[in-house]
Nucleic acid binder design. Structure first.
Lengths: 337, 337
DNA sequence: AGGACTTACTAATTCGCTATAGTGATCGTT
DNA sequence: AACGATCACTATAGCGAATTAGTAAGTCCT
């Protein structure tokens, strides 16, 4: 039998309410009683049942994270950022992975909602706002990250995606590339934003845009690198071949790199290559990979701060949008002398 | 105001117990009433409060994972494996990261225990069994992964670490290496096991062992690659230099690779290199990295299965130990013609 | 028709805790 | 000495569900 407050109260000949107050550091208790309770608690290694507490306070001290993948370093880093930021406040993180599938995401969110989590952080794979309307109606606090939902005035923390596309593309142009291809991401915030940045950069520099230089793959997690390979093979069939490629993310770029090298071409001399995400061992690749850093750690931290502010304020505050600025990280794959 | 069973019952002029039974598919309810309840539930988008349910059933349908790092692909993969395996059964995963610090781990475990999780999965950074004794006393189900605690008859899922060390070292020997160095891991199950495998392989092949060829770094997560670099620089100062290096894990090996190449040496001609973990883009590195695959996905899955079996059996079953066999994955970093 | 079953429900209790109102004792004040 | 405060604590009513025992109505059998 697990031990309860009542037991401790009985042992000490006091009321259960008194024990409860001691444990919550309520001032209303005399020093002597306080010590006695604390001692007995330590003796018995007692811990109050959080479930029962949550039921009455209405707060579970649990924060949910729904991401397309926990394996992707970007989301892993975010998970870590959130987890460490909320830990000291006594919150724990519940994770759920949608595997990039809107249906799965829906189920996961439903499951989490039933658990009355204090807040949700979601990198959504959804195309419909339905879910979010529902949460608004329930006045369930949530924060969107990475992927904006348009038509939704929600709390959001993300990166300036257009700027990501611009930075990468402009860098390629400065390195002398004139036939710049793009292996793009999905049809969502980041995918479209980076693509738009790519187009804007081309336009501003007077470089003609061509659909032939843009390819898209469905990004199923672990296979991303393989998809980068395939996409690049397609691009190598173009005539003329591109002389610079901007990839939606680093795994795609890594795949592309392998196709380029296998075709006997040189990086960056024949084709310059840049990705996005700035993964930890980008500089240990066959050719060190230039990338756009999207500040994933900071993103997690800001998301956590936003969540905590949501939880602390009593009435629902107006939705905030936080956009981080990406930075260019130049390595060998684009550095032409 | 959030909606409760009582509200639905009142709307329909029936008792709350009836609603409860419908929702749990209890047979004791007539078809007509059942339909009416279900309809109203859908109308109101009602979901039973899991907290309240848990309080009375004593099961939270939450499983905890405590790992040294969520960023490390090995643990990320395990998290994914567990999460996906328990999802269909209605369980969610709560994650906590110990950052390789026994004190933090202790706090995290305490926090999770207070939440009455149904089970814990732990890759422990601890050196004391205290925590685990405590859980045994509380009859809290848990499964250890990756790192065994000796002196503890607990459920454990791990890899045959001695075999990891043997496989790697024997492979280097077969590739013609005679002065084989080891950049070892921490003083725990995997670290010691792989080291022992390394020694045994040397002994069996009659190759003398030397402390000079073994270096150790404290493995603080994100900096692992940097530590591999430093460790390798140390090894390059030995005279004679090693002609083969077995690294505790792939990030270390990647760092080592960079030091070797920067020193103007060739891989594998001058120094052959092998790691462990078989990370996804090992074959896109400057030299494709040979590695030992430790079956992280399988490990997560088996851990999840073990957890579920623990939860299903009524009385506590005898502790089980599951040891997976590692496999050798040969790539360019060791392939001498 | 009367008893035994079955069916379909209800009422009441419980889970372990928080929160609020209330109580008796002690103290200071005038 | 009578009054109000303050202190340190108790009693009690929930929180939102699960669960158990109980019950009325309907069915079946003889």
């Amino acid at each position: 039998m697990t031990i309860r407050m009542k037991d401790i109260a009985k042992d000490l000949g006091i009321s259960q309410a008194t024990v409860s107050k001691v444990l919550r550091k309520h001032p209303d208790i005399g020093e002597k009683t306080r010590q006695r309770v604390l001692e007995r608690v330590k003796e018995l290694d007692y811990q109050p049942n959080t479930l029962a507490r949550s039921l009455v306070t209405g707060r579970s001290c649990l924060i949910g994270l729904v991401a397309p993948s926990l394996l992707h370093p970007f989301f892993a880093e975010i998970a870590r950022g959130i987890s460490s930021a909320v830990r000291d406040k006594g919150y724990f993180l519940v994770v759920a992975s949608s595997e990039e599938d809107p249906e799965v995401e829906k189920e996961e969110i439903s499951g989490l909602l039933a658990r009355r989590l204090d807040a949700l952080v979601i990198a959504s794979a959804a195309t419909e706002v339905e879910q979010f309307d529902r949460m608004d109606k329930m006045s369930q606090p949530y924060v969107l990250i990475d992927r904006d939902m348009n038509g939704l005035a929600a709390n959001f923390v993300g990166v300036n995606e257009v700027r990501v596309g611009r930075l990468a593309t402009e860098h390629l142009i400065e390195m002398g590339c004139r036939r710049i291809a793009h292996i793009r991401g999905q049809d969502n915030g980041p995918g479209n934003g980076r693509f738009e940045g790519y187009r804007l950069a081309l336009r501003d520099r007077g470089i003609p845009y061509s659909d032939d230089y843009v390819v898209r793959r469905s990004l199923v997690d672990t296979e991303t690198t393989q998809q980068g390979r395939e996409a690049m093979r397609l691009l190598l069939e173009r005539d003329p071949k591109p002389d610079g490629v901007f990839c939606f993310n680093d795994p795609l770029a890594i795949g592309a790199m392998s196709s380029i090298l296998d075709a006997g071409l040189r990086i960056p001399e024949d084709i310059a290559l840049i990705g996005c995400g700035n993964l930890p061992n980008n500089d240990c690749l066959r050719v060190p990979l230039s990338s756009i850093d999207q500040q994933s750690h900071m993103l997690g931290q800001r998301a956590a701060e936003l969540v905590l502010s949501l939880l602390e304020s009593k009435q629902r505050p107006r939705a905030r949008t936080i956009i981080l600025e990406p930075t260019l990280v130049v390595r060998g794959s684009t550095q032409r002398k």
